[in-house]
């Protein structure tokens, strides 16, 4: 149990067939202890369905999802092992936040004081007595995290937790999840905010149309496509520069805004070609491979294919 980096969540050949749509299609991946794993995919890729199958809320058509080798529904007192945040608006509108947490404590056999402890942890202790309907979206997200922390779990599963959070809230969440992973726990977090994920995740699992596209450490996934460096260049003499770049065996594409995109070259090379050709440059930008671009390239055309 204390062994670092062992697989905490193991998804094997998971499939969910709805009457017409195969929401999740033979999906396999693992989530390791001590790491934040980003679960990425376009809207409708099957992220939420997958997480709900991992948590025993949705029954898979086939395949298995286990946590520490055990199905969620077979875990004794599961919230002591797994904390989950699935949707912000999941408390009774007329019940106070503190009572919402106490209900969960009672059901899980945890002492009532855990409710106050986690409220303090997420900074809601001063508004714990307020009814849920008076909560802002950001406060609801914090309450969701508080609920997930009640059982002091070793695995945390979050579905789009950044939704509704302001930039400060997002930073707070990022620090919290990183600290959580640093303690040797496993974090699986789905998101469509890819920039955020690049700063947060150690590993990524990318899916589209219910299928696995790529899994691995963020650096590896970025590296796979880093070879295709791109340079954006803006010049009043676009035709002249295009010709010169093609002469230099570089691939050039004219962008809708009139700038040129050069594939397979470093900015220095492009600058050198332009200088040699006597072309005036107004802008020269090397576009480093980022998760967003990699993601778009990997999932391009797959979202609509269902």
């Amino acid at each position: 149990m204390s062994r670092p980096n062992h697989a905490e969540i193991s998804v094997e050949h998971l499939t969910k067939q709805y009457s017409k749509v195969r929401a999740v299609d033979d999906l396999s991946f693992t989530v390791h202890a001590g790491r934040v794993t980003g679960f990425l995919g376009p809207n409708g890729a099957g992220k939420t369905t997958t997480l709900r199958m991992v948590l025993g809320l949705v029954t898979p058509t086939s395949g298995t999802a286990t946590i520490g080798g055990v199905r969620y529904v077979d875990l004794p007192d599961p919230i002591r092992h797994v904390g989950a945040i699935l949707e912000a608006s999941s408390a009774h509108r007329g019940r106070s936040a503190r009572n919402h947490l106490r209900v969960i404590c009672r059901a899980a056999g945890l002492p009532d004081r855990r409710a106050d402890e986690v409220l303090e942890m997420v900074g809601l202790h001063t508004v714990g007595g307020r009814k849920f309907k008076g909560y802002s979206l950001g406060m609801k997200q914090r309450l969701g995290i508080a609920a997930a922390m009640l059982g002091d779990p070793r695995v945390l599963i979050l579905d789009e937790p950044a939704n509704g959070l302001d930039p400060e809230g997002i930073r707070w969440m990022r620090d919290l999840l990183k600290a959580f992973a640093a303690e040797g726990r496993a974090v699986l977090v789905s998101s469509h905010l890819l920039g955020e994920m690049q700063q947060l995740a150690d590993d990524v699992v990318i899916i589209a149309a219910g299928r696995l596209i790529r899994q691995g450490p963020v650096s590896d996934v970025l590296g796979e496509t880093a070879g295709v460096a791109k340079v954006r260049v803006r010049t009043p003499q676009a035709e002249q520069l295009s010709a010169a770049l093609r002469d230099a065996q570089l691939e050039v594409a004219v962008q809708p805004d009139g700038s040129l995109q050069v594939l397979g070259a470093e900015p220095a090379r492009v600058g050198n070609v332009a200088f040699t050709a006597g072309v005036e440059l107004h802008e020269l930008i090397g576009e480093a491979a980022d998760l967003e671009r990699v993601f778009l390239e990997l999932t391009a055309g797959k979202a609509g294919a269902r």
């Binding site: 809320l57 919230i79 699935l86 999941s90 009774h92």
Partner: peptide
Amino acid sequence: TSEFFHLTATSTFLTTPR
């Protein structure tokens, strides 16, 4: 019915999957 009306079924069944 209130568990479904107020979307608390998720929280309830996460805590008690049986």
